[in-house]
Design a protein around this nucleic acid. Structure first.
Length: 753
RNA sequence: GCCCGGGUGGCGGAAUUGGUAGACGCAGCGGACUUAAAAUCCGCUGUCCGCAAGGACGUGCCGGUUCGAGUCCGGCCCCGGGCACCA
């Protein structure tokens, strides 16, 4: 009797009951709850925690499954694995829901967390739920308020004016996302740039360390490191000053190309620059232009893509070497917040300057010639390469590098400038004019200025039962919140009503999982055991901001004596987007697929299997409803194969010396597959090919119709291998099949043989 | 606009270090089982020419390096992500 003929006698695969049984077992045995154990090799496996938007989406399922596969794999390798979960719970959607449905943001958020926690449980992830962290709880955010006050003492935070998007109709600050084609998303009013005082964290103080640290992260993708390097944008150049006619203050600019200095034919300042304001005072056209510049979206992408516009100010600067007059312009592409708010323009050797000069009939002067002696026509386009200086007086004939040094020396000797390092990176503005966030722990006193809230008065608790109208933050109208006394002098004072950027919460949560229950310290000894995170998995969309802020915070915590680690994440896996119809799946676009329905229909294992099989984790995954079926079919075949094998009775021990050719072939296939899958999961993060290899081995088993004692022993070895190898990906069915195969040991907690 | 990715059959993808392009799966077609359908199982399936044997073409486009290119180099096109207040 062949194995296949027996299939009619078997019980069918029922994912719902199989998965319930496995999940009950894991919960009762508490096998994913881990305590610090110095004798065991720790492995901290972390996923970027979700924003509790209401329901899990496919992007969540993908990233959590990737991380769970890695966690379970390392667990099987005998490591002591921590995989926690929590909630990035502050943010705008809660306020939007409050406006739309009248539910307080806190209530909406806590309900969503409860729903999503249930959904996560149904997917069978190996989480230590005892360490759950929720960022909107005072016991969490009190510690970032505390750290902020420590940073204040060290001068790592400061307050200055900076630009926000202002909706003049709704009288409120808008996020970039809320500005659509330059207009407010609700009011449709033209958005204005407005300057208001805001708090900043000095991430630039760590710019060099954040840059150099990238060289010590071999476990990070090169693309992410390159993006961060470019974002920090360290450049070496010269800061030099141009005298301005009839002005006492010179105009200071930074350039990486002092070798092109004699090619400067005009200069440009930002619309907010004092010189522009001065020129506007008695020129209505310039005033109108500055007004026009103000009416724009604050996002860099819109500034870079909009039409480059400018106006001559009628003021001249004096070239510091030639003494020639250089006209001053105001231009919409120069930003007050970046550098000094002024740039020198070399249209002959810079593309943007060239285009601007062409458009406004400004002089284009060649001062660099190609090093190879070839001819160029500067009228046809800017020449941006390094080369040999021409039309530059004493510097003629020097190469760019020598000229850089000679000109830099000249400025340092005359005191008109100096060599300087410039960063593209700007300090981190953390103030948000919103309600649903962690209050910034500052008290304003007429006599003492801004005073940090003393440690004994922390946390500054965000009131949760508030009237939410949508017209500005309710905190601004809540006297019992903002009325207070100055901690320094005791006089009546006013509390800060702005809250933190939600990136603040996500910049240190990974460390707090080590000791979420400590109500006396931000971090304790347990942090030293678990940190740094061994494997961090999350969306590629966080390649810069979240990951850079976290690297910054880790260093701030280190310098505060809270941690020994400089880098928070040793290995990083950036998972690609889940796309549908070529675009990121998102509620906004209405192209979501609900994982809940698929789980109800096929079970969690099928959904997990399909997500891992459909594409390698780093690539974008284009969703297709077909293919899930295939995963389900495979699991049924898998179930049937093991069941048929077991139904035929106990297999004898394998006698390697006694195998015939066919038996040897299957055995070789088994061991080749083990070797391949270990590499695929353990080194390459190629879960899709690991699944494919498992399918191939199972196909080979199903073709193998050898009922002899040794045939059955070889078949058993193959089936056991498939169960073990697939268990990180489809843990529930493997839990059941492992028991069916007569396991003496629990699968998920077993060590490598 | 700038920075970072990606583009391979009808579809998702494989090819790990420059060495047989298309593993595995989906869809499709043919067959078995069934009164029938579903499910399941077996077989075929890059395109074109051919009854076949076989041949030609083929990894977004153009060019290059190499005995040999999906893979390396140069130039382009298209798609996705990020651009500092979406998370």
């Amino acid at each position: 009797m062949t194995a296949r003929k027996r299939s009619s006698m078997s019980t069918p695969y029922n994912p719902e009951s199989v998965e319930k049984a496995a999940q009950d077992y894991w919960q009762e045995s508490r096998c994913f709850e881990v305590l610090e154990d110095q004798d065991k090799e720790k492995f901290y496996c972390l996923t970027m925690f979700p924003y509790p938007s209401g329901k899990l989406h496919m992007g969540h399922v993908r990233v959590f499954t990737i991380s769970d596969v890695i966690a379970r794999y390392h667990r099987m390798q005998g490591r002591h694995v921590l995989q926690p979960m929590g909630w990035d719970a502050f943010g705008m959607p809660a306020e939007n829901a409050a406006i739309k449905r009248g539910v307080p943001p806190a209530e909406w958020t806590y309900n969503n967390i409860d729903d999503m926690r249930d959904q996560l449980r149904r997917l069978g992830y190996a989480y230590d739920w005892t360490r759950e962290v929720t960022t909107c709880r005072p016991e969490y955010y009190r510690w970032e308020q505390w750290l902020f006050t420590k940073m204040f003492e060290k001068g790592l935070v400061y307050r200055r004016n900076s630009v926000v998007n202002w909706d003049p109709v709704d009288q409120t600050v808008l996020a970039n996302e809320q500005v659509i084609d330059g207009r407010g998303w609700r009011s449709d009013a033209l958005v204005e740039r407005r300057e208001i005082p805001q708090w900043f964290m000095k991430i630039t103080a760590y710019a060099d360390e954040l840059l150099d640290g990238l060289d010590d992260l071999p476990g990070w993708p090169d693309s992410v490191k390159t993006m961060q390097r470019n974002w920090i944008g360290r450049s070496e150049g010269v800061e030099l000053s141009f005298a301005v006619e009839d002005e006492d203050e010179p105009l200071v600019v930074f350039t990486t190309r002092p070798d092109t200095l004699l090619g400067v034919t005009y200069m440009a300042v930002a619309a907010e620059h004092p010189l522009a304001a001065k020129a506007a005072a008695d020129n209505a056209a310039i005033a109108a232009f500055i007004d026009e510049c103000r009416q724009s979206h604050a996002a860099e992408a819109s500034l870079e893509t909009m039409e480059k516009k400018g106006m001559a100010l009628g003021i001249d600067a004096v070239h510091p070497i030639s003494g020639e007059k250089v006209p001053l312009w105001v231009a919409n592409f120069v930003l007050m917040s970046y550098g000094t708010g002024a740039v020198m323009a070399v249209p002959g050797h810079d593309e943007r300057d060239w285009e601007f000069a062409k458009k406004h009939g400004l002089e284009i002067r060649q001062v660099i010639a190609p090093a190879d002696g070839s001819e160029i026509d500067i009228d046809e386009g800017a020449f941006t390469d390094y080369g040999v200086l021409v039309n530059s007086g004493d510097y003629d004939g020097m190469d760019s590098q020598s000229a850089f040094n000679a000109i830099a020396d000249y400025f340092e000797e005359t005191g008109l400038g100096r060599r300087a390092v410039n960063y593209r990176l700007r300090d981190w503005g953390v103030s948000r004019q919103r309600y649903w966030g962690a209050p910034i722990p500052i008290i304003y006193c007429d006599d003492c200025d801004a005073v940090p809230v003393p440690e004994k008065d922390l946390p500054v608790v965000l009131p949760e039962d508030v009237e939410f109208t949508g017209h500005g933050s309710p905190l601004k109208d809540l006297t019992e919140f903002y009325e207070t006394t100055c901690p320094r002098c005791g006089n009546a004072a006013r509390r800060e009503t702005d809250t933190f950027d939600t990136f603040v919460e996500s910049s240190w949560y990974f460390a707090r999982y080590a000791c979420p229950d400590n109500d006396r310290k931000m971090l304790d000894d347990r942090e030293a055991y678990w940190m740094p995170v061994d494997q961090y998995t999350g969306g590629i969309e966080h390649a810069i901001l979240h990951l850079l802020y976290s690297r910054f915070f880790q260093r701030v915590m280190r310098d505060e004596g809270l941690s020994a680690a400089s880098e928070p994440f040793t290995n990083l896996l950036t998972q690609g987007m889940v796309l549908k119809d070529g675009a990121k799946m998102s509620k906004n676009k209405g192209n979501t697929v609900d994982p809940q329905e698929l789980i109800a229909r096929f079970g969690a294992d099928t959904v997990r299997l399909f997500m891992m099989f459909a594409a390698p984790p780093e690539q974008a995954l284009e969703w297709s409803d077909e293919g899930v079926q295939g995963g389900s079919r495979f699991l049924k075949r898998f179930w049937g194969a093991v069941q048929n094998h077991v139904a035929a009775g106990t297999a004898v021990d394998l006698d390697v010396a006694a195998l015939d050719t066919g038996q040897k072939d299957l055995r070789r296939k088994t061991h080749e597959t083990i070797s391949k899958i270990s590499d695929d999961i353990g080194r390459r993060n190629m879960f899709n090919t690991a699944v494919a290899a498992s399918m191939e081995l199972l196909n080979a088993v199903n073709r193998f119709e050898d009922g002899s004692d040794q045939g059955r022993a070889v078949e058993r070895e193959a089936l056991e291998a498939v169960v073990l190898m697939l268990s990180p990906i489809v843990p529930h069915i493997c839990h059941a099949l492992w028991q069916m195969l007569g396991a003496r040991q629990d699968l998920c907690c077993r060590r490598r043989r």
